[in-house]
Amino acid sequence: VTVHVDGVEYDFDNPEEALKFAKKVAEDKNGTYEVHGNQIRVT
């Protein structure tokens, strides 16, 4: 699973970890996250 944040890609073997990371980053920057299959984009 790849999490995209501001043009940087973070790869996770564990989808739950990826989702947790995306949620935290989105909260920290008052943004949102979208899941597209095995890609998660934080905006």
Rank of each mutant, 00 (worst) to 15 (best):
K24W: 10
V8R: 12
T2V: 12
V42M: 03
K29H: 12
E27F: 13
V1L: 07
A26V: 06
V5L: 08
A22K: 00
E16G: 08
D13T: 11
G7R: 04
D28A: 14
R41I: 15
E17A: 10
Y33N: 01
Y10I: 07
V5W: 06
I40R: 00
T43E: 12
G37S: 05
F21P: 01
K20E: 14
N38Q: 07
N14G: 09
V1C: 09
E17H: 06
F12I: 02
K23G: 05
A22G: 03
E16I: 11
A26S: 08
P15C: 13
K20D: 13
T2D: 01
K29D: 05
K24S: 10
E27Q: 14
E34I: 12
K20Q: 13
V35C: 08
N14T: 13
T43G: 07
E17Q: 08
D6V: 03
F12H: 02
T2G: 03
V3T: 01
Q39I: 15
R41P: 03
R41N: 14
K29A: 09
D13K: 11
K24L: 09
V1F: 15
T2M: 06
D28V: 10
A18M: 00
R41T: 15
V8A: 09
D28E: 15
H36A: 10
A26M: 04
A18S: 02
V5D: 04
P15L: 15
R41A: 09
D11M: 15
K20P: 03
R41W: 15
D11S: 14
E16F: 09
G31K: 04
I40M: 03
V1R: 04
G37Q: 06
V25D: 02
V1A: 10
A22R: 00
G31T: 08
E16H: 10
K23D: 05
A26N: 02
K29Y: 15
N14Y: 07
E34D: 06
I40Q: 00
V5Q: 02
T43R: 10
A18Y: 00
D28F: 11
N30P: 03
Q39F: 12
D28N: 10
Q39V: 15
N14V: 07
V25G: 02
D6Q: 06
H36Q: 12
D13E: 12
K20Y: 10
R41Q: 14
H4P: 01
E9T: 14
A18I: 00
I40T: 01
A26F: 03
V35H: 06
K23T: 08
H4G: 03
F21N: 01
K20N: 13
T43V: 15
K29W: 14
V35K: 05
E16V: 11
G7I: 03
T43K: 11
D11G: 13
A22C: 05
V42T: 02
G31S: 06
D13I: 10
A26H: 02
K23F: 05
P15T: 12
Y33C: 07
A26C: 13
E9I: 15
F12Q: 00
D13A: 12
D13Y: 08
G31H: 04
P15K: 14
V42Y: 02
V5Y: 09
P15H: 15
K23Q: 13
V42K: 00
V35W: 14
F12L: 02
E9M: 14
Y10E: 02
R41C: 12
D6C: 07
E34Y: 12
K24M: 11
K23V: 10
V8E: 12
F12E: 01
G37W: 04
N14K: 07
D11T: 14
T2P: 01
E9H: 12
L19P: 00
T43W: 15
D28H: 10
E34R: 07
F12R: 00
P15N: 09
T32G: 08
K24C: 12
E34P: 01
T2I: 11
T32S: 13
E17K: 06
V35Q: 07
A18V: 01
G37P: 04
F21K: 01
D6E: 09
N30H: 12
V1S: 06
E27V: 10
E17R: 05
F21H: 03
E27G: 10
G7V: 03
V8M: 12
A26P: 00
Q39T: 14
T2C: 07
D6R: 04
Y10P: 00
P15D: 08
F21C: 04
V35R: 07
V5R: 02
V25T: 10
F21Q: 01
E27C: 14
R41H: 15
L19I: 12
A22P: 01
R41L: 15
V25E: 09
N38R: 06
V8T: 10
K20M: 13
K20V: 12
I40G: 00
P15I: 15
K29T: 15
H36V: 14
L19V: 08
D13L: 10
T2S: 08
T2R: 09
D13Q: 11
D13S: 11
Y33V: 13
G7W: 04
N30R: 10
E9F: 11
V8H: 11
T2Y: 06
V5S: 04
V5M: 06
G7Q: 05
F21I: 01
F21E: 02
V42E: 02
N30C: 09
Y33E: 01
E34Q: 10
Q39W: 10
T32E: 07
K23H: 08
E34F: 10
A18H: 00
N30M: 09
K24P: 01
G37H: 05
H4Q: 08
D11H: 15
E17N: 06
A18F: 00
Q39K: 07
G37R: 04
K24H: 09
V25K: 09
D13V: 11
Q39D: 11
E9P: 09
V35S: 05
E27T: 12
V1E: 02
E34W: 10
K23E: 09
K24Q: 13
D13M: 09
V5T: 04
A18E: 00
K24F: 08
V3W: 02
V42P: 02
K29E: 07
G37D: 08
E9Q: 14
E27H: 14
Y33T: 04
F21L: 02
V1W: 15
V8D: 08
Q39H: 14
A22S: 03
V5P: 02
F12P: 00
T2W: 06
D11F: 15
D6P: 02
V1Q: 04
V1G: 04
T32A: 09
V25A: 12
E27S: 13
Y10H: 07
V5N: 03
T32D: 06
E34K: 08
H4K: 06
A18R: 00
H4F: 14
H36C: 14
N38W: 05
E16A: 10
V3A: 02
L19H: 06
K20A: 15
K20T: 12
V3L: 02
A22V: 04
E17P: 03
V5E: 03
N14E: 09
V25Q: 12
H4Y: 14
D11N: 14
Y33L: 11
G7T: 04
Y10W: 09
T32Q: 10
E34H: 11
K20R: 13
R41M: 15
E9D: 10
V42G: 01
Q39E: 14
L19E: 07
R41F: 15
K24R: 11
A26Y: 03
T43N: 14
A26R: 02
D28T: 10
A22E: 01
G7F: 05
D28R: 09
G31Q: 05
K29I: 15
N14A: 07
T2E: 03
V3I: 03
K24N: 08
T2L: 06
F21R: 00
E16W: 11
N30D: 08
H4V: 13
A26I: 06
P15V: 15
T32W: 14
T43I: 15
A18D: 00
V42I: 12
I40A: 01
F21Y: 07
P15A: 14
D28P: 03
A18T: 00
K24V: 06
V25F: 07
V8F: 12
N14C: 11
Y10T: 04
E9R: 13
Q39M: 11
L19C: 11
D11K: 15
D6S: 06
N14P: 01
L19W: 07
N38S: 09
E17V: 06
H4L: 14
E9G: 09
Y10C: 04
V25S: 08
A26Q: 03
A22T: 03
Y33Q: 02
H36F: 14
K29C: 12
E34N: 06
E34A: 08
E27R: 13
E17T: 08
D28G: 09
T2H: 06
E27P: 02
E9K: 13
N38I: 04
D6A: 07
V5I: 10
V25C: 12
E17I: 06
L19G: 03
K20I: 13
H36N: 13
V35Y: 08
H36R: 11
I40L: 03
N14H: 07
P15S: 11
F12Y: 05
D6I: 03
Y10R: 03
V8Q: 12
H36S: 12
D13H: 09
K29G: 09
E34M: 09
P15W: 15
D11P: 14
K23M: 13
V1Y: 15
E34V: 13
N38E: 05
G31L: 07
